[in-house]
Design a protein around this nucleic acid. Structure first.
Lengths: 200, 200
DNA sequence: ATGTAGGTTCTCTCTATGTTCTCATTCAAG
DNA sequence: CTTGAATGAGAACATAGAGAGAACCTACAT
């Protein structure tokens, strides 16, 4: 069904092109792709590039460095280029890592909640952020969980177990207090596994 | 009447394929299925896979990794259940939205950087977070950008244009100072469009 | 006009993977 | 006991994926 499926080496080729493009600000030559992928023959690379064009991931102009990336619904991998720190050059990561966020965050027992309010602000979780929750009824101490208190109030807090049969829920906001409850009043609904924020 | 009942091993095979899909985001090889089920012969696996196809649980392309689950529940998509706020029940969102983070964050001219350090801590961007950058050479005031100063130091900062030909880069950390530069010394490399954090 | 760089089009090859068989073993139903 | 279904091993074959490299085309600089 999905004719847009890429073979392994086609994927590699696409990743290399994307990485090269973001780093060098221009499209690579066939021979550069070949070198990047460890292929000797530019004819082989040409075949991959043609396949990517057929499948709609790139378009080509009939000239050197004529490859252009196209937004494609199945283009879901991003190159992980490096690490960035204040005042230092970007530290380039050697192995051509790729990131697929759907893969990273997805899963059968997970769902997404949108954060309202500022109770976790000091954890870097802000109003409007999306958090990925994995269904769970138990948690380890210091995990951040969705907890239901007395079957009514759901809240996202860091959880601790100071004593047997006692649960402490800790917000990450100086203006708010941690609260403790008998264990039977607190039901864990899920555990925080990821967080996503979009910027305009 | 054709039976859609699965034998035990057919069931095992289907489970393995589904599980493999969830984890690897691609179809398994026959030999991988064989290994997963403790079977020596890929011919046997082929028989199970063919049975699953006959019974309508999968379809196959005549290619390697050509198995596709029929009920194609795109595993990349997570349900957006609602909003959560401190001390209030989860506010259920009516139009049960679905989120595909790869599509939300992906794009042809984007790449990922890993954050080192704490210069954006007050924006909720922390050490170890992944940020998605869209390639750009200009930015609007107050956007967060990857900026290169004097062609050397790359840094992630909020950008402002206090005066013509003047650029101010503002960290989000009280212990650090905003700095101003003549516009020609600052090259914008990209604009922050997303941020992702993983929790254990 | 000639050389060079880069892109295009071929054919040939090798291997991993998928397909199609036959045969063997076990077990439950009749 | 016989039968048939479910399961497994493995041989033999077919084909897709992948790579090498030759030959050719085109643009362009000298």
């Amino acid at each position: 069904m999905r004719t847009y499926m890429l073979t392994e080496r086609e994927q590699d080729t696409l990743s290399f092109i994307a990485g090269y493009y973001t780093k060098q600000r221009k499209a690579p030559l066939l021979t550069e792709i070949a070198q990047g992928l460890g292929i000797q023959s530019k004819g082989v690379v040409h075949r991959y590039v043609s396949a990517l064009e057929d499948k709609g991931y790139i378009v080509r102009n009939p000239k050197t460095r004529g490859i252009e990336l196209v937004d494609h619904p199945d283009l879901d991998i991003l190159p992980l280029l490096g690490r960035i720190a204040a005042g230092k050059p970007i530290e380039v990561i050697e192995d051509k890592s790729q990131i697929n966020f759907a893969h990273l965050l997805g899963g059968a027992n997970r769902y997404v909640l949108e954060i309202k309010g500022h109770s976790m602000i000091e954890e870097g979780i802000r109003n409007g952020d999306l958090v990925v929750i994995e269904h769970a009824s138990t948690a380890r101490s210091n995990q951040i969980v969705v907890a239901l208190i007395d079957g009514e109030d759901a809240t996202l807090k860091r959880i601790q177990f100071p004593k047997k049969e006692l649960v402490r829920l800790v917000p990450a906001n100086k203006t708010m207090q941690a609260k403790e409850y008998p264990a039977h009043r607190v039901m864990i609904q899920g555990v925080l596994v990821g967080q996503v924020r979009m910027y305009d």
